[in-house]
């Protein structure tokens, strides 16, 4: 190998090293910011998931071929027991020549508990495809507000529970403010998630979670009590 070849290999190695170092520093900085936010909110920070959160049967946690969660902030703030964390999943795909590529999707998540035991409900933004499907007559759960139906796609194991959750007050809030995130409810847990945001922006996500929680109708606890016996 001539000197030019060796130099090229060294340059490549140097660039890879630089890339790894920058990635490490970005990760470190994010962790530090999470730690500072946890301190500010009076909560606990953990780099790893102390709760096996991704085992919860939410739709979001079932996507992709590989998934994980990190940078957990958890504890009780303003009377609400919460968890804030980074979540990602990876999708692998192969082309016709067998070349494997991966795509990573990153999210910011917030969890808390609801005073009820609900079957699974997902509230997602109505997309282009689902909107088109609606025009063709394929409807998900439809509510009395056409504006809400156009903006939100709701699917649930138990349609009745979806109607109990999405009352007029909740629908109005979702239309006015709640559109910054998407939501899932399963059992006692509410999941609120959005595309990955910076650690300081987690405070906004926490506020969105708090408001969603505050808008959960009290009738849900009566119809789907926490002891599990459906009333």
């Amino acid at each position: 190998m001539n000197a030019g070849g060796i130099l090229f290999i060294l340059l490549v190695l140097f660039l890879i090293g630089c890339g790894a170092w920058i990635a490490y520093r970005i990760q470190q900085k994010r962790r530090e910011e999470f730690f500072m936010l946890a301190t500010k909110l009076g909560l606990t920070y953990s780099r790893d998931d102390p709760f096996d959160t991704v085992d919860y049967p939410f739709d979001l946690f079932g996507r992709g071929d590989k998934r994980g969660a990190e940078n957990f902030i958890y504890g009780v703030t303003n009377g609400l027991d919460v968890r804030l964390f980074d979540y990602y999943y990876v999708e692998y795909s192969s082309d016709t020549q067998g070349h494997r590529t991966s795509s990573t999707y990153r999210f910011s998540c917030a969890l808390t508990q609801v005073d009820a035991m609900c079957p699974h409900i997902a509230l997602e933004h109505e997309g282009l495809l689902s909107g088109f499907a609606r025009h063709l007559g394929f409807h998900d759960i439809e509510f009395e507000s056409e504006e809400f139906n156009r903006a939100w796609k709701v699917h649930a194991e138990d349609k009745k529970c979806a109607y109990a959750l999405c009352d007029a007050r909740m629908m109005q809030w979702l239309l006015d403010e709640g559109g910054v995130a998407q939501y899932e409810v399963y059992g006692r847990v509410i999941l609120c998630y959005t595309k990955r945001v910076s650690p300081p922006e987690y405070e906004n996500l926490l506020e969105v979670l708090r408001r969603f929680h505050a808008h959960v109708p009290t009738v849900l606890a009566s119809l789907y009590p926490r002891d599990g016996a459906k009333a």
Binding site: F51, V76, N78, G79, L80, D81, V82, R83, L111, T112, Q113, V114, D115, R188, V189, R210, H213, A214, V216, T218
Partner: peptide, 12 residues
């Protein structure tokens, strides 16, 4: 009065 659920969160 409506029950204020903001303060009812337990451990997820």
């Amino acid at each position: 009065p409506a029950v204020d659920m903001t303060g009812q969160g337990g451990t997820p």
